[in-house]
Design a protein around this nucleic acid. Structure first.
Lengths: 130, 130
DNA sequence: CTCGTAGTTTGACATCCCTCGTACTACGAG
DNA sequence: CTCGTAGTACGAGGGATGTCAAACTACGAG
């Protein structure tokens, strides 16, 4: 499922779901470059974004094998969402995550790609040097 | 003067200058993507980088008209230098600053460009909507 | 030598950020 | 209905960050 479909699904949930499990997302126009850069400047969050980019779809929180507690994981996903980097939506007990590729590309063309490339290069560089 | 020339000049100073006014810079291999993103995620520092990029050369600290005190300005330049974004060198009483374009381009191709483009786009976007 | 200019250092302060544990809620399976 | 799973909320602690003012250092001009 694409991020756009997920967004529409969330819109639908806002009107039909009785339980109020909604997640606030910034509008595209409210996403700030400084916020995005800050969100990406944490190693844990950068790893999350790389994983999300790798699968081209959406992932639930628990597939990420992060070396931190559950609360900390929640915190990092919240930062990514509040800064407009990811789209989150509840599906049953799971919370699915997807990159907001289109929004980011429209606002900051090429930025996500070069950050992902840079992260890959750095990862190779660091693992190659013992 | 280019950043490379400035670096050589600093190497020379390390051996000849009696006063010990040197500034530590990370080697290219020690520059980390997370650090660069963090350095760029502050509005003040992003503005500095944009100004440096605009002139294609080097600028001393005082040409930046930042709405903060002198100590805070020193602090921001230090963060940029310690994270490998700028090259600094003393020339008389002035401290000249230049982007480390080549190092950044080698490590993270396209990153600096897309960040600068994104910053320009955002600036237009924000100033256009009153 | 003396002075002004440019920038640093130090210390302080408020705030934010990453992390955690514990208690809690929402949902699906049975 | 009951239970297990997935994730949230709520502090709280410890460290980093952005900001400032005041005292200081280094250099060039005169």
């Amino acid at each position: 499922m694409t991020a756009q479909k997920a967004q529409k699904e969330q819109e639908a949930q806002k009107q039909t779901s009785p339980s109020g499990r909604f997640l606030e997302h910034p509008d595209r126009a409210d996403i700030r470059l400084e916020g995005v850069l800050h969100a990406l400047s944490d190693p844990m969050r950068l790893q999350i974004v790389r994983d999300l980019a790798a699968v081209e779809g959406e992932l639930n929180c628990s597939v990420f094998d992060l070396p931190v507690s559950k609360s900390t994981t929640t915190h990092h996903f919240r930062v990514l969402r509040e800064n407009g980097v990811v789209q989150q939506i509840y599906r049953g007990t799971a919370k699915m995550n997807a990159l907001r590729r289109d929004d980011l590309e429209a606002l900051f063309p090429g930025l996500l790609g070069s950050v992902l490339t840079a992260a890959s290069l750095q990862a190779s560089r660091l693992s190659a040097a013992p």
